[in-house]
Nucleic acid binder design. Sequence first.
DNA 1: ATAGTAAATAGTAATATTACTATTTAGGAG
DNA 2: CTCCTAAATAGTAATATTACTATTTACTAT
Lengths: 140, 140
Amino acid sequence: MNDFLRLLRNKGFKLTPQRRAVIEALQACSPFPTAQEIHRHVKNRAPDVSLDTVYRNLTLLIRLGIVNQVNLPGRSGSVFEIVDGNHHHHLICLSCGHAECIDYCPVIPQKIAQAEERGFTVVSHSLEFYGYCRACRPAG
Amino acid sequence: MNDFLRLLRNKGFKLTPQRRAVIEALQACSPFPTAQEIHRHVKNRAPDVSLDTVYRNLTLLIRLGIVNQVNLPGRSGSVFEIVDGNHHHHLICLSCGHAECIDYCPVIPQKIAQAEERGFTVVSHSLEFYGYCRACRPAG
DNA sequence: ATAGTAAATAGTAATATTACTATTTAGGAG
DNA sequence: CTCCTAAATAGTAATATTACTATTTACTAT
């Protein structure tokens, strides 16, 4: 976690207690907390933290590549995931919203370099497979 | 578009005027309409169509793999894209929300087959590269 | 340590998305 | 063509997310 704080500092962002609390909550509520769950967890230590602050900090962390936002289509809200070491992607059930990690990543650095040559600076990527899990398959 | 209607029929879904209108709007408002834009377009022909109907049909089309939902992290709402022939993915600017298509797709059928062996039926996948476009790069 | 400054925050308002219910309707059977 | 039934819809309520503004606070330089 000190890595994240150092990165924030280096980029010129302030280390507020609220910001630290959001990062802590992301780790404590793993895996896949919603913004609301993060907010609830943060409020244990700091009851006055607003929802806006949680969302604002999540957005910042996403922009820095520290957090992944995993979208569950057709369900309310997204879930979040802190980028803790091992890079991976997800299978997401379109029926029940269940997400699970897969270690597979086919993206090659060469292609990222190509995007950069086109004037686009890549900070992260996400790959999601959508479908139906074992439990939901009969219904789908 | 007849392909989409035929698929819906084959799966047992009804071909309502509202549903046809949503599909038409997806094509007419290309690229990357929001749900609100689709709703506005649909209301031209059918003023009483509710927002709920638009969202419900988008969800259905997503579940069938006919539509992609492209999430723009930290911005309000998602944008949608009808799956019209050529499979592709996206570069998304975290600052201004601009999305552009890239023809690259590294996902190999073999890996999809592996997920299926684990009991997960894959209907689609999405790959997004997040970063900063040429215009926003100085600020990022 | 103190003051200055821009960033961050709390609280609230606005918007986007999803859930719910009574009613309507598409498509199939007779 | 008419009836039947489950699916789909409109309208509304509930929830999730983002935007805005006055105030507070972390950090820098003195």
